[in-house]
């Protein structure tokens, strides 16, 4: 099933694994209504790579991301973040893990309405009782290009600006990995492009690891690697994707599903 992966080349040997799953299963419901959202997924995401996870609705891509991001617990199998086995951690440690090692970007921004953009960006750090490194803060703010909007509250910002604030928040704590759940789903194409290129830049310039769930082949084309899910299984992947190659692959998968 990974014939393409072989032809397109395995990850470069100097790339270490940032996160991986082993035989990951997630069941919802019981008996008749039992649904295998994940049906034994083994996958690795590499440091300094921008990976897209694609698949039809119900393919399990969101569940995979939630499980990897310590937001949801798997029914079976393991999730490793670096060398840490998430299943061995208690709620408190998971909370700290999310706070210190994971960044999030949501489809619907999810900013705290009472806080200014700057305060929202600093939130994970200030929750932990830490101050942001001023150089890094400047770097991130420049990356997301929000310097003149820092004092504004979310309701005074456009959707694209809000999502850029969310991205800055995710990057600020220098997490080992950033998970983005359809970050451009609620944005027009211009704002979407801004957000995607800012994610791309943070990978290229700062070596950030990013995993992004998306429907959109255009968004996927910004990444280094696309992983395709169907019916709770990893069915294929592409390296150095383009819009066209992604579309082609998607068509193929659909055809296979129809057959």
């Amino acid at each position: 099933m990974t014939h393409r992966a072989e032809t397109l080349g395995l990850p470069r040997s100097d790339r270490r694994v940032a996160a991986r799953t082993v035989a990951l299963r997630k069941l919802y419901g019981q008996g008749e209504a039992e649904v295998h959202a994940l049906d034994g997924v083994d996958i690795a995401f590499y440091e300094g790579e921008f990976t897209a996870v694609m698949g039809a609705s119900g393919s399990g891509k969101s569940t995979l991301m939630h499980c990897m991001a310590a937001l949801d617990s798997p029914t079976d199998g393991r999730v490793f973040l670096g060398d840490t086995d998430l299943s061995s951690l208690k709620d408190k440690q998971l909370t700290e893990l999310r706070r210190d090692k994971i960044g999030f970007v949501f489809q619907s921004f999810n900013l705290v309405p009472t806080l200014t953009a700057k305060e929202n960006i600093e939130l994970p750090l200030s929750i932990a009782g830490r101050r942001p490194d001023p150089t890094w803060f400047d770097t991130v703010i420049d990356t997301v290009n929000l310097r003149d909007r820092l004092g504004h509250r979310p309701n005074e910002l456009s959707g694209g600006q809000q999502q850029r604030v969310a991205c800055a928040r995710a990057l600020m704590s220098r997490p080992e990995i950033v998970f983005a759940d359809e970050p451009t789903g609620n944005l027009d194409s211009t704002s979407g492009a801004e957000v995607l290129s800012l994610l791309r830049r943070s990978v290229d310039e700062h070596g950030q690891t990013i995993v992004m769930v998306t429907h959109d082949p255009v968004a996927a084309a910004y990444t280094d690697r696309v992983v395709f899910l169907a019916d709770g299984l990893v069915v294929d992947e592409l390296r150095n994707p383009t819009r066209e190659s992604v579309l082609e692959e998607m068509g193929e998968l659909t055809a296979r599903a129809m057959a």
Partner: peptide, 16 residues
Amino acid sequence: TREIGLLRAVGLSRRQ
């Protein structure tokens, strides 16, 4: 609810 979920997701502990 949503906001609380977000705060928890970005690392606010139950205690906090």
